[in-house]
Nucleic acid binder design. Structure first.
Lengths: 349, 349
DNA sequence: ATCGTCAATGCAAGCGCTTACATGTTGATT
DNA sequence: AATCAACATGTAAGCGCTTGCATTGACGAT
């Protein structure tokens, strides 16, 4: 007779544990979810059975009945560069602490992809969503509202937008940085910006720079802006374009550190001394900013702090939503500050 | 009399659709999952109802009965720096193309955290897991086997390890780079490595460097190794330690580009010219490597390619597992190559 | 006309869990 | 000793879906 293997025991279920411990499934469930409701002695017996069987509750089943998945979705424009990485890491850490899991997607800065991913995440039962920036189709907010999935916007603070946000004021942050540039005496300034379409952060930063021009009695249109995608290489190309077409610029304000690093690299290639001939500034203060040479003068954004706050805010929203309560006001403006490093100095001459 | 709102219609279910279309739930389910099994006319009626109600299947319910979640979990040591970002992005893109969603966690290089996260992801019903490196407790592999969750290791190739892997040969890649260093005439060499404990990649890289020493008839113990965590600042400190204690070194091999960038920064601070006084090398070839100055000589790892391949491999494993089939052999060694840039030159003198 | 066949559809079980409600125990109170 | 909280535990319904099996009816063959 052929020796029978033990049937490939598939994952133990609640009732396996119940049987093993000699109690009902309800008791096991209670041990796991509200241990105070079951008496010490039973609990120990149950827990022992749980250990012995290496039981782990089936998530789908739990989510189905609880109508909560303890999952948060995040859709970021890209995972490739470090812009969102640090903040997202902090976001995830804070989430884990509260027993939530993170589902991430990246949209490659493409609105239609983002919309599709939002639907996917909602269909997957995400309890809440983290979105970057405010700029998106109204219909998406309707969809979210209808499905009762709270969404929080990060990386951009806008108190009266459709969604609450935990972020910073891109516009005034950039205005402050531009003011530094102007204070040093620069007047022929160009800006390399991320594409403005569908990106309120990029747009606000340009507006901020122009604000500073206005505040100094200058024509804001004198700020030449080159738009491109957030990419080293693109930053380099934009810088090249600027110095070719406008050889007299003395400062180039970049929409973020990645673009600025690209500009620096191109400058080196072209033999342009930074900051002696041209000053360059960044935005975000990712690690890169301090490592390139010359180190970048940039706007420091406390990404970790923002990520953590965003997690708490979103969890609060989810909790409120699950009790049908009114959404709490969780919006928060995280403050930024300009950090001065070597890449910015007075104009030559 | 108070005007009643329509009851906050919660998400429509299969049976809502069935009723709307005048068919049974089974038919609706079939329309959605195997449309060829239902006749054209009925299908149209059902689809119309689906549209009208804006029905989206409940994911948890589906996952529960199908025992498939179309979710892949990935646990990476950190999201903070760009080491894993690019590969993970490619991994995610490939996954999305196949209808899978990615669940990510980061373990902060802490084994116990990683173990906990593996359990969480399995409990969450991940169909498969992407893990970085081979080094972990045997028990984890047992756990995974018992739960029938296929796991693929990436960033490290080891054909006879417990798990299949899609990665590169850290050891020989580093040996090749070290050979370049030796070829230039360097003999007093130090290495800044990531912590070796629990990190086979870090260990292999050190071994690789020693291999090159041996191949050149040198004492492998002559390679002084400083271990630290993968962090700019730590790289800087380690570099400082090395040049203080061994002022005669002419080359510092770093375990990755982040450490190397830290070393570069510290060298600048100390007024040490790279590569004139000391050469520095990295590993990974993340974008950073080309942007710092001097640009880093490093080992180029095709992260995107690796991510994509890993996704396909893992999906194949999941498919096999779900049909109880034997796991296909998906292991793959991705080839790397040394890229020479300015940070490495012959020793002074 | 009768029967068999097969495609289309319906019926109903059950996935693993939570929870309202029912039942059983205990000990304090009178 | 009888009564009754108050609490511990069990019973069982059902969450939304898929799927094996039963049923129906149309059609061609006899």
């Amino acid at each position: 007779m052929v020796k029978k293997h033990a049937p490939p025991r598939s994952a133990p279920t609640l009732s396996d544990v119940a049987q093993e411990a000699g109690v009902s499934t309800a008791t096991v469930s209670r041990c796991l979810n509200s241990p105070e409701r079951v008496v010490e002695s039973t609990r120990q017996r149950v827990m022992a059975a749980v250990e012995r069987l290496e039981y782990t509750p089936n998530f789908a089943a739990r989510a189905m009945v609880a109508k909560r998945s303890y999952t948060i979705g995040a859709i970021i424009p890209t995972m490739e560069n470090a812009i969102f990485a640090r903040g997202l890491q902090a976001f995830q850490d804070a989430l884990s602490d509260q027993g939530y899991t993170l589902l991430v997607s990246s949209s490659a800065y493409r609105p239609e992809l983002e919309a599709a991913q939002i639907r996917t995440l909602v269909a997957r039962g995400a309890d809440g969503l983290l979105l970057i920036g405010h700029d998106r189709d109204e219909g998406i907010y309707d969809y979210l509202a209808q499905h009762r999935v709270p969404a929080l916007v990060a990386w951009s603070y806008a108190p009266d937008a459709r969604s609450p946000s935990v972020g910073f004021d891109n516009r005034s942050a950039m205005a402050e940085l531009a003011q530094h540039v102007l204070d040093l005496g620069h007047r022929r300034i160009a800006m390399i910006s991320g594409f403005a379409a569908g990106n309120d952060r990029a747009r606000s930063r340009v507006l901020g720079a122009r604000d500073a021009f206005i505040a100094n009695g200058l024509d804001p249109e004198a700020l030449r802006v080159v738009e491109t995608s957030y990419d080293f290489e693109k930053g380099a190309r934009a810088f090249e374009e600027i110095v070719t077409q406008q050889p007299d610029v003395t400062a180039v304000i970049c929409g973020n550190d990645v673009l600025a690093a690209g500009a620096l690299q191109e400058a080196r290639r072209l033999g342009i001394a930074i900051p002696e001939q041209i000053s360059v500034t960044g935005f975000d203060d990712i690690e890169l900013a301090a490592v390139v040479s010359p180190a970048l003068t940039t706007v420091h954004v406390p990404h970790r702090e923002m990520g953590r706050q965003a997690a708490h805010a979103l969890i609060a929203m989810v909790a409120a939503a699950s009790q049908q309560a009114a959404l709490p006001d969780v919006s928060q403006c995280i403050s930024t500050k300009v950090v001065s490093r070597a890449s910015l100095s007075p104009p030559p001459g």
